[in-house]
């Protein structure tokens, strides 16, 4: 089967496109360097991570921190209960009510 003139012209044109694809302009080293320099100049700095977030990440996240807080609170309660002489008399209770009036109800039972 012979090709039509139109097919031949299309084939010929394709050989031009093929030649153009095979010979792209190659960027000069100066152009590549200049583009990269501009990129590095204009590039935003990596975001600074706040201290709390870094600690959180380093300690294993919120669940671990919450566990630590609970353990610290429990230790405080134990120290408060176990220290000798922690149960003061009326004088100490009155002093505590002076500095922290909201304790009046709590301490009322001691009298």
């Amino acid at each position: 089967m012979s090709m039509s003139d139109e097919d031949r012209a299309a084939l010929r044109l394709e050989s031009y496109f093929e030649a153009a694809r095979a010979h792209p302009p190659v960027p000069s080293a100066a152009l590549m360097a200049s583009v990269l320099r501009a990129a590095e100049t204009m590039q935003p700095a990596p975001p600074r991570v706040p201290l709390a977030a870094r600690l959180r990440a380093a300690s294993g996240g919120w669940p671990v921190l919450a566990g630590l807080a609970a353990a610290a609170a429990a230790l405080g309660v134990w120290i408060g209960a176990a220290l000798p002489g922690a149960n003061g008399g009326a004088t100490e209770a009155a002093y505590l009510v002076d500095v922290a009036p909201e304790l009046a109800f709590v301490l009322a039972g001691d009298f």
Binding site: P24, P25, V26, P27, L31, M32, V35, L36, A39, E40, Q43, P44, A45, P46, P47
Partner: peptide
């Protein structure tokens, strides 16, 4: 690149500059 990754700047330069040119 927008997050500050230097390697991304290089990769984009190398990939896109020849096409743009």
């Amino acid at each position: 690149f927008a997050a500050g990754d230097r390697a991304a700047a290089r990769a984009l330069t190398q990939r896109l500059t020849p096409r743009v040119l």
